[in-house]
C-alpha cells in the first residue's frame, strides 16, 4: 500500500464502468481502457466490511464517481437529513472526483420507492429541484452533476422542454450535467421525438460525464415502441451512434458504460468499454 493515496481531482476524459463487486479481481488484473469507476452511493453507506474495503482499494488506482440513486432530488418534500449526512460521510472518506444524482424523485413521505420516478417540467418543479441542488452542493462543498432521466410518459402540465429545464437548473445552481445518451434515446423513442434534436438543444458545455447503457424493447397500448431502461445488456447500435454524435458536440469527456442487471463476466463488460474507448478516440 502506498503511503499517500493519489488524489484524483477530476474524472479523466476516458472510459469508466459501473463497478460491480464480482469484477473486483478481474478488473484490477486487466482493466483494459478503464480509467475510472462509478459506484452507487447507497451501496457504500453501511458501516464497513467488504464494500468499504473494496472501495478503499479501488480508490488507489481509479478515479471514482459516486452516483446517488436515493436522494430524491425532485421529491416534493424536504431532502432526508439522515441521507444527506450519510452522503457527506461517504464523500468525505472516499474523496470521489465526482458526485452525481438524477432528475427524478424516489421518496414519498417516509417511503422510499427504489425507482427513478418522473417529474413535470414546471416553474414549481424548477424551484424544488434548484433548492435541493443548492442544499446538496452547499453541504458537500462541491459541484454536483444532474442526470437526464429516461421517460416512458410525459405530464400534461409541463410548460418547458427537458433541455430548457436542465439549462435553467444549471444556470441557477451552477451544477453540471450528466448526459445519459441511452436515456436520451429511450425518451426520444418513447415520446416520438428526435434524439439528435435533443442533443442539439442540450447545454453540452455543462456536461461533466456521459453515460451509455443497454435497454429493452416493448410496446405501449397503441402498439407504439416503448423502450425500457434496463441496464441489462449490451449498448444498442443506435445508442453508440448517438454517442458518436454527442461527442462531436461535447468534445472529449468521461464516458461510462453501465450494466447493472444480469451483470456479465468481466471480459464482456471490458469489450463494451473497449468499444466506447474507440469512439472516444475517433
Amino acid at each position: 500500500m502506498r503511503d499517500t493515496p493519489p488524489r484524483f481531482d477530476d474524472l479523466p476524459n476516458a472510459i469508466g464502468v459501473g463497478y460491480k463487486p464480482q469484477h473486483f479481481s478481474d478488473l484490477r488484473a486487466d482493466p483494459g481502457p478503464v480509467a475510472w469507476l462509478e459506484v452507487h452511493a447507497e451501496n457504500y453507506m453501511g458501516d464497513g466490511g467488504r464494500p468499504h474495503a473494496q472501495l478503499r482499494a479501488l480508490s488507489q488506482d481509479f478515479a471514482l464517481s459516486v452516483h446517488g440513486v436515493g436522494l430524491s432530488i425532485g421529491g416534493e418534500g424536504r431532502l432526508d437529513p439522515d441521507h444527506l449526512a450519510r452522503l457527506k460521510r461517504l464523500c468525505d472518506w472516499a474523496q470521489p472526483a465526482r458526485f452525481s444524482e438524477h432528475l427524478a424523485w424516489s421518496t414519498h413521505g417516509s417511503e422510499f420507492l427504489n425507482d427513478l420516478l418522473p417529474l413535470p417540467y414546471t416553474a414549481a418543479t424548477l424551484q424544488t429541484v434548484t433548492d435541493h441542488i443548492d442544499q446538496v452542493q452547499n453541504l458537500l462543498g462541491r459541484q454536483m452533476l444532474l442526470e437526464n432521466p429516461s421517460s416512458y410518459l410525459a405530464f400534461a402540465e409541463s410548460t418547458m422542454s427537458e433541455t430548457d429545464f436542465l439549462a435553467e437548473v444549471t444556470a441557477r445552481t451552477g451544477c453540471g450535467l450528466l448526459l445519459d445518451v441511452n436515456n436520451v434515446f429511450i425518451s426520444a423513442t418513447n415520446l416520438g421525438q428526435s434524439a439528435q434534436a435533443y442533443i442539439d438543444a442540450f447545454p453540452t458545455d455543462k456536461v461533466g460525464e456521459i453515460h451509455v447503457g443497454g435497454h429493452d424493447a416493448d410496446e405501449d397500448s397503441h402498439g407504439a415502441p416503448l423502450l425500457i431502461d434496463s441496464h441489462g445488456r449490451e449498448v444498442a447500435d443506435p445508442v453508440w451512434a448517438l454517442l458518436a454524435y454527442t461527442l462531436q458536440q461535447t468534445g472529449p469527456a468521461p464516458v461510462l458504460v453501465e450494466w447493472d442487471n444480469d451483470v456479465p463476466d468481466w471480459p464482456t463488460l471490458r469489450a463494451e468499454a473497449c468499444r466506447a474507448s474507440e469512439m472516444l478516440a475517433a
Binding site: 410518459l153 410525459a154 405530464f155 400534461a156 416520438g192 421525438q193 405501449d220
Partner: peptide, 16 residues
Amino acid sequence: GLVDGNNAPAGKRYDV
C-alpha cells in the same frame, strides 16, 4: 394528467 408524446392518455406506460 399523464400523457404520451402525442398528448394522448399514457395508458400502459404508467405500468413501466
